[in-house]
Design a binder for these strands. Structure first.
Length: 273
DNA sequence: AGTATCTCCTGCGTGC
DNA sequence: TGCACGCAGGAGATAC
């Protein structure tokens, strides 16, 4: 599932192929995503130039002069660029194509339809989905003091807490599991009980794990033209996610798997306290 | 306000 | 080979 590193890799992959180009049309085949694709979207986009592709959390923002196209990949979404002239057979769940004036296509594919494609006039940060978001995990604003201050008095498990997009964006289930392992913090520990020093360690690992995944994604997913555009998983070796029952890579004790907020949570009972 | 639960959806693995 | 089933999960909506 696209986590922040996949979304950032997607952004970097598609940006050079569509930025600066004029949109000729939007072709929608299936409007029923997480929210219906707005009926006015085709007319909003036609004839407009794409000024750039940005990212906020896991939302991709295609900037045009009068507003932004907001795209989320949900659980199973992907975008691929189809170069002008190349024929790329339409697959099931290819829900829309953004067609450029030079015939380059940006094709959205999403089997589970948990993603979305929405419109927001400037400023895009005022869209209800974006307005209350916390800082970017790799930005300076996400630091130990922020995590410490925000978590005081909170009884929620630290894993649930760091996955809350109002606290910090883009920390999905996989990377929350991984960062907590590296930080040596038990996922069920009450967020409000974490010391400033441990917040420091956790923040550092969240940044490190995400940055490393982006680096790996950058090499794995260089080619966004052709192919199936499926990001898949990163070649990085996961320490705990998906390894319940298998030996801890640090102490060899079998990893424990539990459910936390309906999410699969894996940790080492010995290394994480 | 904080917390827990429900919800959307399809592909995949499992058991018979 | 086919079917029913359970499960996975981002994150907003809803109910306490």
């Amino acid at each position: 599932m696209p986590e922040l590193p996949e979304v950032e890799t997607t952004r970097r992959g598609i940006e050079p192929h569509i930025s600066g180009k004029k949109i000729s049309e939007l072709i929608v085949r299936e409007r029923r995503l997480r929210w219906p694709i707005p009926a006015s979207l085709e007319s909003q986009l036609a004839g407009q130039e794409i000024l750039g592709v940005e990212r906020r959390g896991k939302y991709l923002l295609l900037r045009i002069a009068k507003g932004s196209l907001i795209v989320h990949l949900g659980m199973s979404g992907s975008l691929r660029v189809i170069a002008a002239g190349s024929d790329d057979a339409l697959k099931t769940h290819d829900h829309f194509d953004l067609v450029m004036a030079d015939s380059t296509r940006l094709r959205y594919h999403d089997p589970r339809r948990f993603g979305c494609a929405l419109w927001q006039a400037h400023p895009v940060s005022e869209h209800p989905l974006l307005a209350a978001l916390g800082p970017e995990p790799l930005a300076e604003e996400f630091n130990a003091e922020h995590l410490f201050a925000r978590s005081r008095g909170r009884k929620a498990p630290i894993k649930t807490f760091v996955m809350d997009s109002k606290v910090v964006v883009g920390v999905g289930n996989i990377y929350a599991n991984e960062a907590l392992f590296f930080a040596g913090i038990h996922p069920k520990r009450a967020a409000g009980k974490l010391s400033l020093a441990r917040c420091e360690v956790l923040v550092a690992w969240i940044k490190r794990v995400l940055a490393q995944a982006i680096e790996v994604g950058g090499t794995t997913l260089r080619d966004f033209v052709g192919g199936d555009g499926q990001p898949g998983y990163f070649a990085q070796s996961l320490q705990v996610y998906g390894r319940g029952g298998e030996p801890c890579r640090s102490c060899a004790k079998p990893l424990k798997e539990i459910r936390l907020g309906q999410r699969s949570t894996v940790y080492c009972t010995q290394c994480q306290r």
